[in-house]
Structure formats: C-alpha cells, structure tokens
Design a protein around this nucleic acid. Structure first.
Lengths: 275, 275
DNA sequence: ACACAAATGGAATATAAATTCTATAAAAGG
DNA sequence: CCTTTTATAGAATTTATATTCCATTTGTGT
C-alpha cells in the first residue's frame, strides 16, 4: 500500500475508494473533502468532534490510505494549504500588474468574472428598492397563474424561475417561444394572472411587445430589467432593476439570478403567511 | 500589553517594535516575517532550529508581543493561511441557520442571498483548479459539436451555455428532454463531439446515465458538479467543481453561472488563437 | 438464527511538543 | 572594573496530542 503524497492524488484516492469504505471511513472521507482546511490545521480530537467520529477512527482512516498515522496524512493537507495560498496571491499580483492582454490564462479570466460578479451583487444590494421588491411579491402572491417570459441571455433566469415556482406549488407558464409559438403561448393569459418579464438591453422585441399588450389588458406586469429607461420599466406595474457588470464583453448573470432567487423565496414566505 | 489578533496587526507590530528588540528576538522577528508559513505550520523546535535559536526564545518572543505562549501566536499565523476568504463554511452555516422567521422582510432575504452569492464566488476562486479549467477548455476547443445536458435546477446553466456558445459560432446541441426525448436527443452524439454535463446533488438520473453511456463510447465528457464524489465526476474526463451555497433551502446559482461564463470566454479565446 | 469477521467506541498509553526553570553569559550603569 | 540588570541556552517539566488496545457492537454469510 502506497500512500498518496500530494493533495490531488489523495483526493483522487479518497474519491475512487469511497465506495469500498466502511460507514465511518466514508463519513470521514466526506468530511475531509468538504473541509480540507480543518484536516490541515486542527487536532485529531477537534476534527473527530466536528466530523462526529471518534479520534481513533481518524487514525484508522489514515492507515487505510497507507499512511503510518494521522499526522503523516495531515502533512499532505498542509502542503496543499501552502501551495494553494501562494497560487492565489500570485494571480492577484499578476492581475493588478498586467491588465493589458497578457493575462490570457483562463484562471485570470475566472478572477475577472468573480470580481465582476461580486461587484454586481454589491451593486444589487445598493440599488434595489426594498419597497419595489415587496410590491412585486404582493402582485405575485395574488396571481392565479404566473406567466414567465424572457429570451436569449435572460432566458435562463425565466427558466430557473419556472423551476423554483413549481417547487412552491405556484402555478406558472413559461413562455419560451418554443416552436415559434411565443404569442400563442401567451394567449391564455387573463385577468387574475400576472406576467413576469425579464429582459435587458438590447431588449427582445417579443418580450417588449408582450409586456405592452398585457399591460393594455389591465393584467399586472412585474419586470426585471436594467433601469428605469428600459421599455419594460415603462409598461410594468413594478420593475426590479438590476445592473449587471460586463467583463470581457460578456455580462454576468449573478445579480439577476440572485434577484430571481430572492423573489422566489420572498414569495414562498408570503404564500406561507397567507395560508 | 495587548496581543495582535490578526496577521496584519502582528506584522505591523513586528516591524514597529523591531528596533527595541533584543538580539535574539530581532532574529526571530526577521525569520517570522520571511517565513510566515513556517511560523504557521512548524513546531517550536523545528522553527527554532531553522531560525538558529533556542526553542525557549520563541516562547519569550511570543510573550514579548503579549501572547500567553507560542501556540497562541501561531494561531494568528494559521488564520492568515486560511483566511483567503474562507470563513466560507461558517458564514454559510450562519446564513442557513437564522431561518427562525424573524427575518421575514424580503430585503433581509435579499441580503442573505447576496452574502451567500459573494461567499460562493470567493470559494469558487479558491477551490477551482486552474489546470482542470484548462483541460476542459482544451477538450471543448477540439469538439466538433458540444452536447449540453442538465435538468431541473441546473438546466438554466445549460440553457445559458447554449446561448453563449452560439455567440461564439461553436456548434452545440442542448439536450433538454423536451417532449420526453432526452435520450433521443442525445443519440446523435458521436466521436469527435464532447458532452458537457451539469448536475448537482441530488443528481438527475438521466444526466448521470447519459454521462456513463457517453463515456463508455469513448466520447469525452466534461462536467460541472459539486465535488469529486459526484457520480458525474467519477465518469468524466474533467470535472469542474463548484460548491453552491444553500440559503433558506434554496441554492444559489451565482458560482455555477460564473463558472459557465468563464468557460465560454476562455473557450472563445482558445478558438481565436486556433484561428 | 447462528457463528464468524469486520468495524467501532472509548479508555489507556505512548509520544511529541510547548513551556518553565535555572545556571550562565552578556550588557548596562556607576 | 565591579555590580546589577537583563538576556540566553539548555535541561527539566508539564501539557497536549497522537496512537494503541481491547471490549462491544454491527454486519455478513451459511
């Protein structure tokens, strides 16, 4: 039995042998994969307690993977802690330095998007008006059926909403334009329903038109869009504004997705209270 | 005398009091600033030897800065090692916990999701292996057609990928199970193509099955999932791991979406270079 | 349902590490 | 140059931690 000497090798071993492990050992393997930092820094008894096992199990665990004892295995986790940290710092350094175009490594791209996503989320916190959110929830609580519509880049948000609303046992119809039947799908909307439309510039023509038509029938429209000047905002009862950050010519969806999620959870609570 | 409780505070203290220190303590201060990792991970006697001093000097050193002993000072160095954003687990735990119902205002819900989303993004930065990202990009660059598959909560990610890949003029097929034709849609996949599968626990059975089948045909599989123990990871050539935060019983998609976006942009660059 | 093997919990033990103590050495002050 | 104070080295001690061992439980095959 030869013990893995690198963190990655150990992870692979943990995964590939996971099935053949006994109950406790499985439990430890899962804890180790979830909390590598604990494995690196904490003492045997502390880890044992957190993972809900006996200290001796940790030693048996280490031995099952070929180490002479827990301490030897811990070294592997520790080495990773050091390597990883320096990687990260180097990336940060290179990010600040050469913002020209040398940074073509994908991991630098990742850093950019992560920073962008964080910025977008912070921005969301600042600009979103809590009253509007409440208004949107109120409108949706009373809806008989929620009609969802979005196209292109925004479509995944509507798609997610359709999944999440179903979880809440809230009836909804996703107008996805499948089979070229965008307006046909929307035709069954009627008083008592609510349209929830999502679109960002450049605004999908079908969505804008549907919003206008629905509004003119006096059916409530809630929208998620990118500012008060959006054609959706003009014709909606409530418009929740999100500003997504653009990085490398692609726009993130973090903020919009988070808003969608919030809307769903807030709606879920409101529904619970109503019942 | 009050002991610095953060790494940065300690560094400042070491620097500012450097002049007034005795010979040995100076020596140790310099070693500590040069080798913070050693200070965090090694034992007193090991550090003593490397720094060329006596073990007892290290204890005096720690006490000179207000700590009860060396171990207490070491905690500060250790926390720095981990603190690259990973109070993650704890922050998330605290978010999930206060479902007491006190926080019934929607804006509190929003704040929780924003915090959760930010934490998930920071975590993504730490745990994503850059090499795996490169591998994934390489596999996708060479693909004739990219087949995308995901179900339920993950579906919006595949949906977004299908939109974004089309923008890159990369051919792709979205296996969405529309019309109950999940496996029928997948039938046309063949050597030269690549399957990109996305699923989180509890893993959609169809997606898992499709991944297995595809792999057994020797067609490359790239997956996005939630850890090395995922059935997707087991049967993929490359698995990109994302840990999503669960707040209020709903899981955010910020990190997964950001990863998807990164993959697309990195792929776009790779395609440009190839041409 | 029984016997056998494997796994587990928890106390007991061994090991290693941190800390204290004291004799000695270096520095400071007169 | 001697005395007093402070710092240091190294051994001794204490404390913390890892590891072993064995009785008990859990699982498995007949």
């Amino acid at each position: 039995m030869i013990a893995p000497s690198t963190y990655d090798a150990l992870r692979d071993e943990l995964a590939s042998r996971h099935d053949e492990l006994s109950k406790r050992l499985k439990q430890i393997a899962e804890y180790a994969l979830d909390n590598p930092n604990d494995m690196a820094l904490e003492t045997v008894s502390e880890i044992a307690e957190r993972a809900g096992v006996q200290p001796s199990s940790l030693i048996r665990f280490a031995k099952a993977f070929g180490y002479s004892g827990f301490s030897e295995m811990q070294k592997v986790f520790r080495s990773h802690l050091v390597e990883n940290g320096s990687n990260y710092k180097e990336r940060i350094r290179s990010l600040g330095r050469d913002d020209s175009c040398q940074s073509n490594s994908s991991s630098v791209v990742l850093d950019d998007f992560i920073d962008g996503g964080i910025a977008a989320l912070n921005n969301l916190r600042e600009v979103l008006n809590p009253e509007k959110l409440e208004q949107a929830v109120e409108a949706l609580v009373d809806a008989d059926v929620i009609y969802l519509t979005a196209q292109r880049r925004s479509f995944p948000i509507a798609s997610y909403l359709s999944y999440a609303l179903a979880q809440l046992d809230k009836r909804c119809v996703l107008i996805d334009g499948n089979g070229g039947m965008f307006f046909e799908q929307a035709r069954s909307i009627r008083p008592g329903d609510v349209l929830l439309a999502i679109s960002f510039k450049s605004y999908a023509a079908e969505v804008v038109q549907l919003v206008k038509e629905t509004k003119s029938k006096d059916i409530p429209v809630v929208s998620i869009s990118d500012g008060i000047l959006s054609p959706l905002a003009q014709h909606s009862d409530v418009c929740l504004e999100v500003e997504e950050v653009e990085v490398h010519a692609f726009r993130s969806l973090s903020a919009s997705m988070t808003l969608a999620l919030t809307l769903v959870v807030a709606l879920g609570r409101a529904l619970d209270q109503a019942a």
